[in-house]
Computed example of a mutant assay.
Amino acid sequence: MSTTPEHDARVAKLIFGSVYPHYITKIVKKGRTKEELHQVLTWLTGYDENQLENLIEKKATMEAFFANANINPNAHLIKGVICGYRIEDIETPVTKYARYMDKLVDELAKGRKMDKILRQA
């Protein structure tokens, strides 16, 4: 299923800081840590912890969040379905990157090993 322009616009306008607490809740409930979440986010975006906190404070939209991100060259290895969309079929970069992030958080919450999540093995 392909995304619509309306869906892409909605994702782009989402505030990263409004999604972030949901990520924390999801992974902590499953026995993972905030540090592991930050490791995953850093791997995907290149942002360090201070930059992540700054983007949360600035209420950065997903569009702004990913505008200056240094997306990991192995991010294309993230595949599967998230929120009803096959990641490989998403064409809009911001939507694709947001779904990459969702998929990584899901994998973390499901207990997948970190080297597998970070596409190192």
Rank of each mutant, 00 (worst) to 15 (best):
D106V: 11
I90K: 04
K59G: 15
T45Q: 05
A9K: 15
T95Q: 02
E88A: 08
R86F: 00
L44D: 09
K103C: 11
E36N: 03
T61E: 06
D115E: 13
L118F: 08
D48T: 03
G31C: 09
I87Y: 00
K34H: 14
G17Q: 11
K26I: 04
K34C: 00
D8C: 09
E36V: 06
R99G: 00
Y47M: 10
L37H: 09
E53Q: 11
H38V: 12
R112P: 00
D102E: 15
D48G: 05
H22C: 07
D89L: 10
Q39M: 14
N68E: 11
Q120D: 10
T92W: 00
T33L: 08
N54Y: 12
V81G: 01
A109T: 07
Q51G: 02
N50D: 14
I24R: 14
N54I: 10
V19Y: 03
I15E: 08
D89W: 03
L41Q: 12
A67R: 14
A12H: 05
Y85D: 01
N68K: 14
Q51M: 12
Y23P: 07
R32Y: 08
G111T: 12
K34W: 01
I56Y: 09
L77N: 09
Q120R: 15
N54W: 09
K103W: 02
Y47F: 15
G111Q: 12
D106Q: 14
L41A: 12
R10S: 13
Y100W: 01
D8I: 07
K59L: 02
T25P: 02
D115I: 08
A109S: 15
H22I: 08
I90N: 01
H38K: 12
G111P: 07
A75T: 09
F65T: 04
M1L: 10
H38R: 14
S2G: 14
K58D: 09
I117M: 06
G84R: 07
I87W: 00
K96D: 03
T45H: 03
V11C: 01
H7D: 05
K13M: 08
K79N: 05
W43G: 06
D106Y: 11
K58S: 10
